[in-house]
Design a binder for these strands. Structure first.
Lengths: 152, 152
DNA sequence: TACGACTACCTCGCACACGATTGAATCGGC
DNA sequence: GCCGATTCAATCGTGTGCGAGGTAGTCGTA
């Protein structure tokens, strides 16, 4: 009784969640060769995007933005710091917090990513209105699923 | 010049790929507590879904269905075999291939997953027509992105 | 002020994803 | 039949993603 048109033969067809999973990985796969020359992974790129906007942030703000947790973001930031793209330091006004700031090298890296959004946009093969529609649906799902998970 | 309505303040907002990434993880997070009592992860569950339909398959067919690669699926099947849910054996007609077949225990596990699709459907918070629309968009993206990655 | 609750962060362990490499079996062209 | 190319499968190393557990700092309230 699931909403299911039989337009495909695979057993995974009636599962929209699988389409989500497959689409997410396929887009990440497009990013990979674009980011590889910069020595960045996709999640690392997302962190850099946040920092290119905010210039300076905290670990907490970054993981909120990425909807991830400390146990994923902490080692990730550690690796980016080792590569010299950012620095972490304890805040003096609240010693629990850690400030994350770009280095010059991290800031400069931005120039080498200018072409990426257009390449991704083209690779996804959907037009502007569809992107808008997709985003609306995806945010509904994320909000609903997150709320569902929270009250369990 | 990206298709971008400024309806959100975060720096990740203009990136539909991020919405994809976040939505995928949020739905997986809904699966997790449902699958945990069965001792399955989400990718493991997907493999079981394939086997519940096909009853018997090959490693190659399974990874095609899941759009994954041997290096992900091989260890995954190994773990499921260790759990006693399936068995792997070399084919006699083509010794390169490995047949994957359910055990009785693997077959029986299906009964304990009957409620899952409805829970997921409800948790996603979108109606039937939207699911259809979403699936259409996601498959377009997956096909387009996969084609793009292939010719690079 | 004392102290329990909460917050920010980190580490460890396990299971994906995926690039790279290896090895065995089969296929294709001659 | 021979041999290079291809296919199927497994393993190793790196980087997430997340549950569980731990520490240090701050807050609320008596």
């Amino acid at each position: 009784m699931r909403p299911d048109t039989e337009d495909d033969i695979g057993p995974l067809s009636p599962m929209p969640c699988f389409d989500l999973y497959a689409a997410s990985r396929s887009v990440t796969a497009v990013y990979r060769p674009l980011l590889e020359p910069l020595g960045l992974t996709y999640p690392q790129y997302l962190v850099m995007v946040v920092l290119w906007q905010h210039e300076e942030s905290t670990v907490r703000e970054i993981l909120r933005e990425l909807q991830l947790d400390y146990n994923t973001v902490s080692p990730l930031l550690k690796r980016l710091e080792t590569r010299g793209l950012l620095v972490r330091r304890r805040r003096t006004d609240d010693e629990r917090s850690v400030t994350v700031a770009l280095t010059d090298e991290g800031r400069d890296l931005r120039e080498r990513t200018r072409h990426i959004p257009d390449v991704i946009g083209a690779a996804m093969g959907i037009d502007g209105p569809t992107v808008i529609k997709l985003r609306e649906i995806l945010r509904t799902i994320t909000a609903s699923a997150t709320a569902h998970a929270a009250k369990t």
